Simulated assay, not measured.
Amino acid sequence: MANTPQSKKRARQNERRQDINKARRSRIRTYLRKVEEAIASGDQAAATAALRAAQPELMRGVTKGVVHKNTAARKMSRLSSRVKALSA
């Protein structure tokens, strides 16, 4: 348990930050799931639109420190290659 005033404050801040980060992560996963569903349906137009909507959300997660930069880049690369493959 936190004893000093600073460690008590840190514990409070960490709880608030955890809720915010959880919401951000959930939002990112929702956008990624929409892309996955569009790919599964085989609709390239919908998949492209969903990917365009997901990209800024994923990059926002990077700037906020929720997702690592390389993880976001890897996810975008793999999703975009799968969307591109729908046209073939």
Rank of each mutant, 00 (worst) to 15 (best):
M1S: 15
P5D: 10
P5W: 12
Q6C: 06
S7A: 15
S7C: 04
K8G: 02
K8E: 09
K9I: 13
R10V: 08
A11K: 10
A11L: 14
R12F: 13
Q13M: 14
N14H: 13
E15G: 05
E15V: 02
R16Y: 10
R16V: 11
R17E: 13
Q18T: 14
N21S: 03
K22R: 13
K22D: 11
A23H: 13
I28G: 00
R29Y: 10
R29M: 08
R29L: 09
T30W: 01
T30S: 10
R33L: 09
K34V: 05
E37Q: 11
G42H: 06
D43P: 04
D43T: 04
Q44L: 03
Q44G: 04
T48P: 00
A49G: 14
A49Y: 01
A53H: 07
A54P: 00
A54D: 01
P56F: 07
E57G: 08
L58K: 01
L58T: 10
M59S: 06
R60V: 02
G61Y: 03
V62H: 10
K64Q: 11
G65L: 07
H68T: 06
K69P: 01
K69S: 09
N70L: 12
T71K: 02
T71Q: 06
T71M: 06
A73T: 14
R74E: 10
K75E: 15
M76C: 11
L79Y: 09
S80H: 04
S80M: 13
S81T: 03
S81Y: 09
R82W: 04
L86K: 04
L86D: 08
